[in-house]
Computed example of a mutant assay.
Amino acid sequence: MTPDPHDRRSLRTDFCGLAFDTPLVLLSGCVGFGEEYTRIEGFSNRDAGAICLKGTTLHPRLGNDPPRVRETPSGMLNSIGLQNPGARAVIDEILPRLDFSETRFIANLSGSTVEEYADLARCFDDSPIDAIEINISCPNVRAGGVAFGNDPEMSQRVVEVCRKETSKPLIIKLSPNQTDIASNARGCIEAGADALAVVNTFMGMAIDVESRKPLLGAGQGGLSGPAIKPMALLKVHQVYRVAKPHGIPIIGQGGIVSAEDALEFMIAGASAVGIGTALFYDPLVCVRINEGLVDYLKRHRIDGIDRIVGTLESKDR
């Protein structure tokens, strides 16, 4: 059952000046370009505060060789390789079909060079998209991808050039596959980031023991799902301590499948939470999570979901 709309008012979230009806964000690569899940009975874009569109590059990409997806214990490896029709097709053909009255839409952009990131930001600045997420941390693309996200200087350079090309809210998606994520986050904030998405998938692989070959066509991919949740949660809290003094909000993500998971990430410092892998086996998971969040706020007599963000207390209290 969908929560009563009056109850749902307690879930309203301000994110970079954008009004979200709920703190849930559907993650890039998990809902295509915002149209696929509308075919499922009971699914509504209104159950999410925002939808991140599929990763988009300047020019069309066919993606990686198959197999591209592999189930793992409590998780999933994916190696899609940013298959997409290119920026111009997304802006001219896909965005006009989206109903911007239902939810917020966030473009997810990825480049192979700093110049490509700048060109992409410029293209989407002149579009109806609500915000731009810069993907500097894709672990299954050979050119660019995670290399940008693991190099603090390169990360800052990408943010700087994108900042010059757009006035839209700029969300930087950070890689967990780096030594000091907090330091990188600080650099991105100084370079002009409005928000941070923490974290992208962890690098991983799977092997067929009979053939002794990788089970993914690209050899490696990104690990997502409940298996990464404890690590992602720690990364969010580490970044929050850097972001809080600057008032920079965080989309926390990594294995969230329940209201309790979402609450953990928000208590650790996330202002919004990303839902991804769970959608593949429970397309209506957002309804259940929203219900759980509303129930939690009622039980604890809290009048707004924003009041629990960053409320983690020391164990000895």
Rank of each mutant, 00 (worst) to 15 (best):
E313T: 12
P67E: 13
R39M: 06
G187P: 08
I132Q: 04
V287A: 06
N140M: 07
D282T: 14
R97I: 03
P5D: 09
Q178R: 11
I228H: 05
A182N: 05
K173D: 12
K213L: 13
L196E: 12
D126C: 04
D208F: 04
A232H: 06
E190K: 15
F124E: 06
E264Y: 00
P3N: 10
G221K: 10
L62D: 13
S127W: 01
I248D: 03
G55R: 08
F124G: 02
I106N: 09
G86Q: 13
A243C: 09
R288Y: 12
L109N: 12
K315E: 08
G225Y: 01
L62K: 15
F100E: 09
D151K: 11
T113I: 12
L77I: 07
R288S: 14
V90N: 05
I181P: 05
D194K: 00
L18M: 15
D47W: 08
R104T: 06
Y240W: 15
F148H: 05
A191C: 11
L223G: 07
I256N: 05
N135T: 02
G269D: 05
G219D: 06
P3S: 07
D261T: 03
T311A: 04
L24G: 08
P249F: 01
R288P: 03
A195C: 11
P85G: 10
G292E: 00
A272H: 05
Q253N: 08
D99S: 01
V114Q: 02
L109S: 11
T72S: 10
D126R: 12
I305M: 12
D7S: 14
V25P: 00
L263G: 02
L216N: 09
D208Q: 03
P139I: 05
R8F: 03
L98G: 02
A270W: 05
N135Q: 10
P5M: 09
P128K: 06
V159D: 01
I181W: 04
A227F: 00
L27R: 00
T179W: 02
A206T: 11
T166H: 08
K54C: 05
A278Q: 09
P214F: 02
L24P: 08
Q156S: 13
I228K: 06
K213S: 12
A191L: 11
A227P: 04
A272L: 03
G32R: 06
P226D: 01
S112Q: 14
E160Q: 13
D282L: 06
L53M: 07
A243V: 04
A107Q: 12
R46D: 02
K229R: 15
S112K: 15
K213H: 09
A270C: 04
I80T: 07
D119N: 00
G55W: 05
D92E: 15
R142T: 14
Q253K: 01
I289W: 08
E41D: 13
R142W: 07
Y296P: 03
A227M: 07
A185S: 13
V287W: 09
